[in-house]
Write a protein that binds this DNA or RNA. Structure first.
Lengths: 226, 226
DNA sequence: CAAATGCTTCGGCCTGCACCAAACCATCCC
DNA sequence: GGGATGGTTTGGTGCAGGCCGAAGCATTTG
């Protein structure tokens, strides 16, 4: 009757509206405090506290006490990708009442999916690399070609430390607002940090939103032409 | 508050023990009848009927009426991989009381993960191909090398139609009983059907179990040496 | 020290939902 | 046709779990 891993436990945990809202908020990759999460989920602090304790105990969340604040974040990329998988499924089986993406138009354009670019900016990066032959697109398996390596290096991103990581260099991630593929994996994360480090764009504190500066936008566009 | 796809709905659906058991049973890829699923979940027929209706309405299940039987199957590979993602997460965050794999020893050895080999047989295939250089293992991205193509063709599997599919040829799938990688994707499925077609092994009706014949086992082992 | 802030624990209310038994359709077989 | 088998619908019961207010700790600030 109950063979295998306890998929029920985890799914039930995610299956509560309040908890799902918190987890979705944490998909931004930022660590949020308990009260921020309570506000995000539209519940009172005591209720939130209970939920967070359960999520932590199940190993989905990671908690750091700092002064009188408790910061929470997703426990790992594994958790994030399981959530994205569910979101993708929900979007594809999408019910009538399901909104197709973020209500905020700015969020549709450039935002963060865990730790890499999503939204139309994320899709643009992927398309640009794919059409120019920098990636061999084979659905899920998308190794970087030599030409691609050269191009990334030219942007000023050092590939060596990325390759050394256990994390896959390139991973395809399906976006639910655009319903198209964008670039995840170590390289996706590196491009995002490159964009913020070089002043192309800034991340809005406490949100998944990314805003491009005027100059940054044009540099971004020339770096990833379509 | 509720932006994005309705992840809650789907997760809550999976988060019920009875429904989770049914879905897990269907991960075998076989279509099962309503009463078989009721038995599998340990509930009465009326209760099962209600659950199945919900799952179908949410687009997770696919129903085919045939005579007086109603056959159910997972609605697509998307659903299957979301389930496997959850199972993987559950296994890694594995709780004390979670059994690490199927109670049935035979099931640990050779069984089906949606439509390809899993268990130790599945792991063996993957290891054999990987160590001989037939696959370039790069975590998730695992393209087949020319040497690998040759070797698969020698087994009597025609690669051309597989490459034509939209489905990725090779995909790495993490197994929860072995906690190791095995081969999914179109090639994984092709190897499984090759094994049954050539009489190496037979699938037990209504189960995820695969039994090798004596002769089949030795042929399998020589085809995939370690 | 007292006051304020952030979070957790406790106790009690209440809704939602899984569950079954009995009755009701549909299909096949004799 | 009647009887058997497989599924679904309906009605009613009961429990799990989400929710909040009030009270209790911990930490920082004045």
């Amino acid at each position: 009757m109950k063979e295998g891993p306890d998929i029920t436990r985890i799914a039930a945990l995610i299956g509560d509206p309040a908890r799902a809202n918190m987890l979705t908020a944490l998909l931004s990759g930022k660590a949020l405090t308990a009260s921020e999460l309570a506000h995000e989920a539209g519940i009172t602090a005591p209720t939130a506290s209970g939920h967070l304790a359960k999520l932590e105990e199940a190993g989905l969340l990671w908690r750091r006490k700092q002064g009188r604040h408790h910061y929470f974040a997703l426990a790992g990329t594994e958790v994030a990708s399981a959530l994205e998988a569910l979101a993708g499924l929900a979007a594809s089986k999408g019910h009538l009442r399901t909104r197709t993406g973020p209500r905020d138009l700015a969020l549709r354009e450039a935002r963060v999916c865990y730790d890499h670019f999503a939204g139309s900016a994320g899709v643009r990066i992927f398309e640009s690399l794919a059409t120019s032959g920098a990636l061999t697109v084979d659905r899920e398996a998308i190794p970087l070609t030599p030409a691609g390596e050269e191009r990334i290096t030219a942007l000023g991103i050092d590939l060596a430390p990325l390759k050394a990581k256990r994390r896959p260099l390139c991973r395809a991630c399906l976006d639910w607002s655009e319903r198209r593929t964008h670039l995840a994996g170590a390289l996706g994360a590196a491009i995002l940090s490159h964009a913020t480090a070089s002043g192309w764009a800034t991340r809005t504190k406490g949100s998944r939103l990314i805003t491009f500066s005027k100059k940054g936008a044009s540099e971004f566009e020339s770096a990833f032409p379509i």
